[in-house]
Simulated assay, not measured.
Amino acid sequence: MKEKTLRHRIKICLWIVITGLALSGITAFPLESELAILKDHVNPGSLMGNWIDHIYHAIKATNTRFPWLSYGTDWLAFAHLVIAVVFVGPLRDPVKNIWVIHFGMIACIGVFPLAFIAGSIRGIPFFWQLIDCSFGVIGLVPLYLCHKYIRLLEAAS
């Protein structure tokens, strides 16, 4: 594979990851508003609809009585945005910054024990734990491909 093609594929994979992290971060700020919209568009009698409605009312009540607790979610959002910026390094020099790809892959794998252990402790339904795990899988795919392309680029140099 040509170096130009490899670099293009690496950039596509990285932009998918950066965009996903940025969107995850940005959408963590207005949780109450987003859930208000979502609960009106999910079947209210379904397992998912009941869970979304339950979470919406919990966040609404919490924000009404203890708005400062959402500050923790703001920091979570900020962390997503900061991590997205870290992936700019491999955009510039993928071979030199392959460690960022390793970091991202480890983080994606780490989603699984966190979702299953903390999710069970916190009483999160199993189907929602699986949804959380899907983010690890979705992130791992472009990072794995990116890693593969960087190794090929390194070998071609």
Results as ranks from 00 to 15, higher is better:
E3K: 13
E3D: 06
R7P: 06
I12D: 01
L14Q: 07
W15N: 09
I16E: 06
V17A: 08
G20D: 07
S24A: 15
E32L: 08
S33V: 12
L35E: 09
H41S: 09
V42T: 01
N43R: 06
G49L: 05
I52W: 04
D53T: 08
H54P: 01
H54K: 02
T64I: 15
T64P: 07
T64K: 15
R65Y: 13
W68P: 05
Y71E: 14
T73Q: 14
A77I: 05
L81V: 12
I83H: 03
A84E: 04
A84H: 09
V85W: 03
V86R: 00
G89H: 12
D93K: 11
K96A: 12
I98T: 13
I98L: 15
I101V: 15
H102A: 12
H102T: 14
F103V: 07
G104M: 09
C108P: 05
G110H: 04
P113H: 06
L114N: 10
F116Y: 11
F116L: 09
F127E: 02
L130S: 03
I131V: 15
C133Q: 06
S134K: 03
F135Q: 13
G136D: 07
L143G: 02
C146D: 08
R151K: 15
R151D: 03
R151I: 13
L152C: 10
L153C: 08
A155R: 13
S157V: 05
